[in-house]
Design a protein around this nucleic acid. Structure first.
Lengths: 198, 198
DNA sequence: AAATAAAATTAACCTAGGTTAATTCTGTCC
DNA sequence: GGACAGAATTAACCTAGGTTAATTTTATTT
């Protein structure tokens, strides 16, 4: 894909958030990354002060606990902004890695430069604001499902919310997304199968 | 407290998020609410399309599961913006109630009007954007603690992060904030006492 | 198609935290 | 200061999900 084409993907993604953004102020060069299935765009602990955009493919945000257990925070499908708001804003190391679950085309801008150039555009600020609102709402819903629902409910919710993802993602990652072990997920699926047969 | 004084509290809170906001565009009238200890500002399921500001006091965001169990999402201390971003943005009923843990003075603006009047001010957008970034980051950290840490760790984290809150809040609410029962929290405290004595 | 590796299932056992209920402690109201 | 209510503790028992390990299924590679 051409660089100009990639940039256009990003521009129209932002515009679709509800604005008429004037992109002429943007002169920051765009980087292109091709990440193969299984590989990491960046690892937990890295510095990741860039705004990434997933043009094609599928990734997961993985964070690893002190005890070495992997936990999937999010799945993200193209086309979408990806990356760590926290790392971009605070400059601190990322709390999760981004792993490609399928071959991906990803591009990126340096966030500080991007924001410096675009912050004077009202339409841009409004779009970015809507983006932040949407990811906040998603996190809030996720928080609620973790505390209120059983693992079985969380699995059913996932299947209902992401019927297509369910087919593209291996079960171990679904388990790590709903916060249980693959063994427990298998058990739950077994029980569901039995109870559905009546 | 005078209405003008209350409005100034809100203005300077926003300004402190890093901007020079021109508030002259704002003509929306401000409402004043006085909420006594134990009372609710609004209940889960209500429509809450206002931007609330907590001038004094302490509240918790409470959501109740289908099985009738209470869960505390957040504690918020004055001075702070409170309310539901989700309800303001989507217009859907709130997923949590706000309960006063101490007597509170709260004021509010209709969000849609407020935003309509202020959205043309770049400095305002930037400040609100920083606010959204900060609440998103807080949620992300909370998500991570829920999945990675044991209840004991979560309790210790809470005590370290909010040493003063710990004294002001009854244990049952701390338990519901870290996602366990009061009985379990009591057990954990007991174990900590024992292990600290060596 | 055979060989290998990775993923999913199943079973046996274990543990953190839930549940219920009795008991003590801490207010706060008259 | 006595009486009552709500909060916290403790104990006994229960359950969802973790752990380990053996077995089968499914994907990859040659």
């Amino acid at each position: 894909m051409e660089r100009a084409q990639l940039a256009n993907n990003i521009f129209s993604y932002f515009n679709d958030l509800g604005g008429e953004i004037d992109w002429r102020a943007l002169t920051t060069p765009l980087d292109v990354h091709v990440t193969e299935k299984g590989q990491y765009l960046f690892q937990q602990g890295d510095s990741a002060k860039r705004l990434y955009f997933l043009h094609s493919g599928l990734v997961r945000y993985v964070s690893v606990s002190d005890q070495g257990k992997e936990f999937t925070q999010t799945f993200a499908q193209a086309p979408r902004i990806i990356g760590s708001t926290r790392a971009m804003v605070t400059g601190s190391p990322v709390l999760f890695g981004i792993q490609a679950l399928e071959d991906c085309v990803i591009s990126s801008y340096d966030w500080a430069e991007f924001y410096q150039q675009m912050r004077h555009d009202n339409a841009f600020l409004e779009c970015y604001l809507h983006f932040l609102e949407s990811i906040f709402i998603a996190k809030e819903e996720r928080e609620s499902t973790f505390v209120k629902d059983s693992a079985e409910r969380r699995y059913l919710n996932f299947c209902q919310a992401y019927p297509t993802l369910k087919e593209r993602i291996s079960q171990q990652y679904i388990a790590s997304y709903i916060g249980i072990t693959p063994v427990a997920l298998s058990r739950i699926r077994q029980q569901l199968k039995l109870s559905n047969q009546g």
